[in-house]
Write a protein that binds this DNA or RNA. Structure first.
Lengths: 273, 273
DNA sequence: CCCATGCAGGCTGTAAACAATAAACACCGC
DNA sequence: GCGGTGTTTATTGTTTACAGCCTGCATGGG
């Protein structure tokens, strides 16, 4: 059980496009240099991918030894990653029991949406104020381009593309508003929603509606009208919450498990491996 | 260098009132049972105390082996605590260099105040809505009692007491507003401000002003007027920011180091031990 | 037939050892 | 004297090993 197969059969940690060299030592070294970050960080990213993909469903326990073996590292970095995920609210860790993937109750999801609405609204207001008299500056151009891409995606019904740019649009607004802590909090909670509710809704109709909301929001921002921008941003986020709640209300009862750390509703063990 | 002196000469980890038993094994066991939490958590609390007390000033490096020896634990829990502090924004960790106590630039402190203003304002609005028609419920009584204690403290010029209840008042409002993620974010950032700006301002005059603001805020909340409550809460937080900035502007240039991880402005090594 | 007790296994919490990096210092050529 | 270079040393990143806890199962008593 030593350090054989440092790059295991399924190299989950291969995030940078480093193709597997034939030899062990040199390629591993290059990978480390390219990564330029502690292993724990890479492990955290890997675990987040596992959670997002559903390989680690809500309620599953993060078995340290199994994950360490799977990722080709030792338990230390895995523990570190687990604690980081706990701080991010993705898992809950219980003394001597381990870390369990959280499941977002409808209640908490709604509260996070509410928080995000306030943050996003304030970001929009700040940005509107900031962009006064700069309707044609580079920031405005960036925002316009993103919305234009979304228009294109809506026309073609390209859901995946729309989603990418949708997330980007929100990130650009909070990123350009100038308040870094606000941005960090907003992104953290948006990420939490994204990872724990596995893309439940997203009908094509919603895409059209959301796009219209984007247009109204951007217009207010570019007009330099802070309070209307805030209102539109809050309304947009709350509309997203409504879409989410409506989606899980009809049929998709997946996200309805409480966040208590029960091992798993079905009798199966953790299906992560 | 083995595990001798598990409770070292300066037992920084003795947080629960467990008086030092004469023997080693039994008392240590009881302490662990009483604590009922991983060591890393205790170490984090100890480090926060060291930061708050100034034993670990901004810019200081957290030497893992030294701290581990001082606290009577091994490096693992110390590392864990350091990463947790990083997530909380109290330290920055650089690869292969270690963790450094952050120093809050005036810029970032102002942004945190801004964020807190929005969060606190929204909490006040939510609470006002929530307490409609319950002016005499237990929550209202709790808030009134806290404000009454602060009135008393103002009369007597009891700064310490005022501060305790001031923090409590803010916590009660965000705690009773019903949005748990919002509460968590607000408390986290308030804590960050408290630990990294070492109580710079707080003249007696400010105490009177702040207390008057509390009264106005509480009146709006108990009247069930959400928007006025929000405005008063935001104004109160922004006034706090103004008091802070004014205080560091005149004389107290302590918090003016940038948050770049320079070893220390003076040539001395980390004065933590 | 149901429930308490004892035992075994797996897993986490913690500690100590090993490897690798980066800063500090001395040395050398110029 | 001065800049560059090799070496040394302290410190972090990672791994491995050990101890304690929790869980699940089997067994025996009610």
């Amino acid at each position: 059980m030593s350090q054989r197969e440092a790059n295991g059969p399924d190299a989950v940690l291969a995030s940078t496009g480093e193709a597997q060299g034939q030899d062990s030592g040199v390629s591993a070294l290059r990978a480390r240099i390219a990564a330029r970050q502690p292993l724990g960080r890479s492990v955290q990213a890997a675990l987040e991918r596992l959670i997002e993909s559903g390989a680690l469903p809500p309620g599953a326990r993060l078995n340290e030894v199994a994950l360490a073996a799977q990722l080709g590292v030792s338990r230390g970095p895995v523990r570190e990653a687990a604690r980081a995920l706990e701080k991010d609210g993705l898992v809950t860790v219980i003394l001597n029991r381990g870390a369990f993937v959280r499941s977002l109750g409808m209640e908490e999801a709604a509260q996070i949406y509410e928080l995000n609405a306030v943050l996003f609204g304030h970001a929009a207001a700040l940005l509107a104020e900031r962009l006064k008299g700069r309707r044609d500056g580079p920031e405005a151009a960036t925002l316009r381009a993103t919305v234009a891409r979304m228009d294109h995606a809506v026309e073609q019904g390209a859901l995946e593309a729309f989603f990418t740019d949708n997330a980007l649009f929100h990130q650009q607004i909070v990123g350009l508003c100038g308040n870094q802590p606000l941005q960090a909090v907003y992104l953290e909670h948006t990420r939490k929603l994204l990872l724990l509710r596995r893309r439940s809704f997203d009908a094509a109709g919603n895409m059209r509606v959301a796009n219209a909301e984007h247009h109204r929001l951007l217009a207010s921002i570019l007009a330099g009208k802070a309070e209307p921008a805030r209102r539109h941003a809050e309304a947009h986020t709350r509309a997203g919450r409504a879409r989410y709640l409506a989606a899980i209300a009809q049929g998709n009862a997946a996200a309805e498990t409480t966040d208590t750390p029960h091992e798993q509703h079905n009798g199966k063990e953790t299906p992560c491996c």
